[in-house]
């Protein structure tokens, strides 16, 4: 329960960073923190106490070994991590293009109409 709430705290830190910071790189870092907290929540919910990692063999099928964790959230998260990297790269490219156009990462300066 407390672990889940700490995940929510991590998400809240990301939201705070997006709402109050003015630097585009800081905002991208906030988006990354939110994404990591969601991945972490999925894996925390999937964990089973005193278990093995989800790789099975005949010895496991005979019932001698402890049960394995929930593999379904792991399969959902493993795609989410790579998608997160691609979207972060796209965000960074947009930020660099904006820097070339306006000469700053400050979003209040970028808001100005120019050219």
């Amino acid at each position: 329960m407390s672990l889940y709430f700490l995940c929510a705290v991590l998400f809240a830190i990301g939201v705070y960073c997006i709402l109050t910071k003015r630097n585009l790189i800081k905002i991208i870092i906030g988006v990354g923190i939110m994404e990591y907290s969601l991945n972490l929540l999925f894996i925390l919910v999937a964990y089973r106490m005193n278990s093995r990692s989800p790789i099975i063999d005949e010895e496991w099928l005979s019932g001698a070994l402890p049960p394995i964790t929930d593999p379904l959230p792991q399969a959902l998260v493993i795609t989410s991590i790579v998608i997160g990297l691609a979207t972060k790269a796209l965000l960074i490219c947009l930020a660099m293009r904006l820097y070339e156009k306006y000469g700053t990462f400050d979003i209040t300066e970028i808001r100005r109409l120019k050219g």
């Binding site: 790579v82 990297l85 691609a86 790269a89 960074i92 490219c93 660099m96």
Partner: peptide, 16 residues
């Protein structure tokens, strides 16, 4: 797909 796509992203960022 993943490897060469991400490498293309990296090259685009480096050569910008």
């Amino acid at each position: 797909n993943v490897g060469m796509g991400l490498f293309a992203i990296f090259l685009a960022l480096i050569l910008f």
